[in-house]
Amino acid sequence: MSVLVFVESKNGKAVKAGLEAISYGKRIGDTTVITFGSASTEDLAAMGKYGAAKVLVCRSINEVNDQQLTKLIAAAVDDTNAETIVLAQDPTGKAIGPRVAARLGAGHVSSAVDIPDTSNNGFVVKTNVFSGKAFAHVAVNTAKKVIAYTPNSLPVNSEESTAEVMEFSPDVNTGGITVKERKLQEGSVAPLPEAELVVSAGRGLKGPENWGIVEDLANSLGATTACSRPVADIGWRPHHEHVGQTGIAIRPNLYIAAGISGAIQHLAGVNGSKTIVVINTDPEAPFFKAADYGIIGDAFEVLPKLTEAIKKFKASNN
C-alpha cells in the first residue's frame, strides 16, 4: 500500500511527532514524506531512518496556513497515488488532517493508537475516545483514508537507511491566514504534548512560590512540567501546562504527579501515560488507583529527595 506522511517542520527542523508519524506510516506500507520549509537536504534524507523511502519538500512554504498545506498534501497525493495519508495528531495535524480528508472525499480517523486492521478486506483503526477512557474501532469506508496518529503509541522505527529527497513545487497559491508572530517556549525541554517525561503538580503544592522543587526534579530528569487545572486557573502556573480533560491530553512514558488528587477529569488527560508515579499525603487520594508507583508522603520532602536520587543515578550511569 502506498502511504503519504505529512511532516511539519519548524525553524528548519522536523517536529518529533512528525517523525513518529513516519514510523507509523512505514508499518502500513511504502512511505513517502511530504514536508515544507528550510530543513537541509541531509536532515531530510535522514528521515529514512524512520522509514521514509522518499521525501518531497516544498521550499516556498514556511508557515502553517491550513489552506496552503491542504493544497500541498492533495498535490502530493496525486503525485504519489497514495491511498493512505498519515499525519500526527498534534495542533497542526488537527488543523489540516480533516481538511485534507474533506477535500479528497476520504474518511478521516483521529487519535489512532494502532495500525489499521485490514483482515477480511476491512480497514479498521483503533482510536482513543472519551478522553482516553475507552477505544473506538473505526472502519473507514472510502478508497482513500486519512489517519491522525497519536504520538508515543507505538515504538519508533530505526533502520540504516537514507531517503531520496526531491523538491516538490505544486501551485499552492492561496490567501487565508497570515502568521504575524510566533512565540515558542524557551528552553531545551520538549513541549508538553511531545514530552516523554513529565513532572506535574497540583494544589497540594500550596502556592506558586513552591514550584522550585517541581522544576528541580523536572530539570534533573530532563522532563517537562505540567499542572492540574485549578493551579492554572488561579494563575500559579501558565495555562499551557494544564493537563486533563479540558487541558492537554498527554501520554508520556513517565508521569510524576505530586499533590494532585486524581479527579476523573485530570485522569482523563494523563491515563494514557505508560508509567504513573503519584506522591500524595493522603493514602485515600483517588490518584493511587491509577498509579503504577505510589509514595504516601509530603511532596515538600519527597520531591527534593527524588531530585537527589536522580542526580546520583545519572552520575553513576555516566
Partner: peptide, 15 residues
C-alpha cells in the same frame, strides 16, 4: 470530549 475527534471544524472550513 466524547469522541475527541477535533475534526468537524476543519471539515466545515474545507467544504
Amino acid at each position: 470530549i466524547n469522541y475527541n475527534g477535533a475534526q468537524v471544524g476543519a471539515m466545515i472550513a474545507e467544504i
